[in-house]
Design a protein around this nucleic acid. Structure first.
Lengths: 322, 322
DNA sequence: AAGCCGTTTGCACGAACGTGCAGAATTGAG
DNA sequence: CTCAATTCTGCACGTTCGTGCAAACGGCTT
């Protein structure tokens, strides 16, 4: 109670400060005098206002020429692209970080009350989760798309942390999926899938309005989280190679042509059937780095994506792979 | 042509800069390196992005529909209020300036393509016009609500300047109303009102989607523009006083109880009949300073307002006139 | 009352930012 | 092409802003 009261005071002050700063162009100094506090407190207050979503900053293209790249991608692949401007020379981590930051902001603009958001887990989505901007919604749900257990650790903490962040940002209920990422024995999966607890999660997944995921890229120079966390062994890799897999979405693998039929590992993975995934109205793919080109091409071919957030150089290569 | 091309380059650069600055939290320095220009140019570019509406900053209150004051005003008067926070001790000009700045931003958020915006003229609306933020719309029209001619000057330049600013900000067509503010002889008005040129303007006025106006306050300490520009003489003032007038909207006068019947000066004014004004879907009243309290009360009583933008101290007094 | 611990505040300092000014670049007319 | 008028650019300076740190505060327990 005292929490919520002082929280309310804080919010009121932040609102007032934000109005003065962003609508009246006053300096923090002037605002500080008005609110009878130090300028530094105002600075912090405005920071608070920004990341609680009290202040919303939108950058909108004057529609007619929403960057040439984005228009071309829409024409060629039928997905709405958001090309993140980055310098050509940039470290992989920085690029990912910047793409993730953009993705986080866009996601918050799409998310709303009464929605169910499905999240995959992995380095990309984790990065996104670190930058989500708060937005108050009611009655919304965050649901985990694939299991996170592996042979060494439960992996739950990692995936759970991601979910928590989304849940907190949207004040949403979170729905974990407490199963292994991959089963050793397909039969065990089949058995488990008959359980009521699993059914409940699958039912929530079926109601997803938005799904966010990165792309795995098993044979790229820098392997994704799935490939280093002890989830797969050498035999598994051979199997993927033999099946001509180029990537995965939430631990479901596909080939360059978008097909995923008879990829043996999929019988043991916990991710959503691609057919089911394609029924989600908005499917947001966040991807950065040219290493993921093949994986991205496969995902597009498979029709897994409706909204694509990617860095500039990858976008260029996608349009002209030369 | 070369203009629009270089304008396009500028816009592209601004868009890129804005994305980097507002969505990726980069410093202007970093952006300057990326765009190969000086940091100061980036600063200017971002300024450009902001006031061309490329970047939109919204401050919204998730607190059960805003500050207590605004909620109370809605309950009591049935209008949506936007209370502008200002210190108690502030000069009248500063207060007006800040209220106007807020009004300008809100107005731009409401204005859209294919809309007709009616503007009154006067110190308040003029202040608003100086702060309008650009927003690209198509096929919209700005129409002058009342004449601006007086006995000494045409007054056209003043009113026209205001219209120009709105027109430029929304790339809208502007429709002037080239008649005197007040006629000496009501019969001349009646005659002129039969003219086709006047009919055309009245027809546009009838299509207004939004009307913006300040409030006149003939008997307050600091008289409005109408009362100092040589529009009215001593006899007119006496007539207003005798009719118990407390204020005006676009040179149409009303009493404290909202009535305007038999106010003799109205037969000679060029403003829109209040009955007509009330048919405009969104009627935005911008007002600052406690001197205008009576005028505001009358306007509310008359049902002239749907959206009210006012300063904090006036709002307080409105709710508790003690 | 005393003592502890988590939070908030103001200060101080370095980083980031806006803007007047003067020179460079671009435009338009002759 | 030349030259003047206009716009754009980078520099330099003063202002404004973010954040680490230590002191002050507020809520709890003992």
């Amino acid at each position: 109670m005292s929490e919520s009261v002082s929280d309310d005071r804080r919010t009121r002050a932040a609102l007032r400060a934000a109005q003065m700063y962003y609508m009246q162009d006053l300096t923090m100094d002037a605002i500080a005098r008005d609110l009878a506090m130090s300028r530094s407190s105002v600075s912090r207050l405005l920071g608070f206002a920004r990341d609680t979503g009290l202040v919303e900053i939108t950058v909108s293209s004057p529609l007619d020429h929403g960057a040439a790249l984005e228009r071309k991608i829409l024409e060629r692949f039928g997905v709405t692209a958001h090309v993140v401007p980055v310098p050509q020379l940039i470290s992989d981590v920085d690029r990912l970080e910047r793409v993730a930051m953009t993705a986080a902001r866009l996601l918050s603009s799409w998310m709303d009350s009464n929605m169910t958001l499905g999240v995959a887990w992995g380095s990309t989505v984790s990065a996104v989760s670190r930058h989500v901007v708060r937005k108050d919604t009611h009655n919304s749900v965050i649901v985990q798309m694939n299991g996170a257990g592996n042979t060494q650790t439960t992996g739950i903490d990692y995936a759970s942390e991601i979910m928590q962040r989304f849940g907190a940002a949207y004040s949403a209920q979170i729905q974990q999926f407490a199963v292994p990422a991959f089963f050793d024995d397909p039969a065990v999966k089949v058995g488990l899938w008959k359980e009521r607890s699993v059914h409940r999660v699958l039912a929530v997944q079926a109601r997803m309005d938005i799904a966010v995921f990165g792309l795995g890229s098993p044979f790229a120079e820098i392997p994704s989280h799935v490939y280093i966390g002890g989830y797969l062994d050498a035999a598994d890799y051979q199997s993927l190679s033999a099946d001509r897999v180029v990537g995965d979405v939430a631990t479901v693998f596909y080939r360059r042509d978008g097909s995923s039929k008879d990829v043996s590992l999929n019988a043991r993975g916990s991710g959503p059937d691609l057919q089911r995934l394609r029924r989600v109205p908005r499917r947001v793919c966040v991807v950065s780095g040219v290493q993921k080109l093949a994986s991205l091409q496969g995902a597009l071919e498979a029709g897994l994506v409706t909204d694509l957030i990617l860095d500039e150089s990858l976008a260029t290569r996608l349009l002209d792979p030369a």
